[in-house]
């Protein structure tokens, strides 16, 4: 903020003084230069013949893929069921583990700020930093291919997500309500049950269905690495270039995701 007096004696205000303004311009300049440089690099590394070709190839695949092979559906029901189970059971397991971790990680409920809280935060970061497809790759190697590996992969990835959002919700609660419960002579657990749980309930329900919704999407690709679900069919169909089957699978995934979005929106609307 810059306030100075003009020669005429009136006070002048500008958002930035001259140096700050020059700095902002320099920043924009640098940003544009980096962008241009990157553009050139990418352009040089691109085989433009293929890119020029792209519309034709895409059109080719599309005509091969349509219409979807509807009869393939009878082989898809079971994988779809698996996919939904991977997402749902995985989410349920993650919630059961994430709730206590969230309470241990929130600075206002943790029993020990200097030991337990860092451990809980580390678990959260560890779980979040590894994508579920990588968890699945590891687990397929460890416990073999199948639905179990997929379920655990989803659960491991979701713990961090659920615990992080939940502990942030716990940290943001209204202190007055807890104070009032404490003042009645309630125990520590009763404070949590009456002062904290009702306050975080809507957030908790929202996080859970949101994560379930994400997990439906994530579990559709887990089959790609052998962790069960519809992704296995997708990979098999792509490998043999059975495009009408691929089209049907993508359609089924789309429908599943739309339904899961609808369900989570309904649940969130009902609970708040």
């Amino acid at each position: 903020m810059a306030v100075f007096t003009s020669q005429a004696g009136s006070k002048i205000w500008q958002r930035r003084d001259r140096n700050a303004q020059l700095l902002v311009w320099a920043g924009w300049m640098a940003g544009i230069m980096v962008f241009m440089y990157c553009w050139q690099q990418i352009s040089r590394a691109t085989t433009w013949v293929f890119v020029m070709d792209a519309p034709r190839i895409a059109d080719d695949i599309l005509t091969r893929a349509l219409p979807p092979r509807w009869s393939y559906m009878e082989q898809l029901w079971w994988p779809v069921w698996d996919t939904i189970n991977i997402a749902t059971i995985g989410t349920a397991i993650s919630i059961i583990i994430a709730v206590p971790i969230a309470f241990l990680a929130a600075s206002n409920t943790t029993p020990s700020k200097y030991f337990i809280r860092p451990v809980a935060l580390f678990i959260i970061v560890g779980s979040r930093s590894i994508n579920s497809i990588i968890w699945a790759l590891l687990l397929v190697t460890i416990i073999g291919p199948g639905v179990l590996a997929g379920t655990i992969a989803i659960a491991l990835r979701s713990i961090g997500f659920v615990a992080k959002l939940l502990y942030e919700a716990i940290e943001e609660i209204d202190r007055n309500q807890i104070e009032a419960i404490t003042a009645t002579g309630a125990s520590r657990w009763q404070e949590i049950a009456y002062g904290i749980v009702p306050q975080i309930m809507p957030t908790f329900a929202g996080i859970s269905v949101f994560r379930w919704d994400i997990n439906i999407r994530e579990s559709t690709v887990l089959g790609y690495v052998g962790a069960g679900g519809i992704g296995m069919q997708l990979q098999a169909s792509m490998n043999v270039l059975a495009w009408p089957q691929v089209a049907l699978i993508l359609l089924v995934i789309l429908v599943a995701v739309v339904i899961s979005e609808w369900v989570s929106a309904k649940v969130r609307g009902a609970i708040i």
Binding site: A180, W189, A193, Y194, P198, M201
Partner: peptide, 22 residues
């Protein structure tokens, strides 16, 4: 400092928390 999402009855009864078990 009422627990906003609980019913009036639950809020009133929360005054008894010191007397009942968890």
């Amino acid at each position: 400092a009422l627990v906003e999402r609980l019913s009036v009855m639950e809020n009133v009864l929360s005054g008894r928390l010191g007397y009942v078990g968890f």
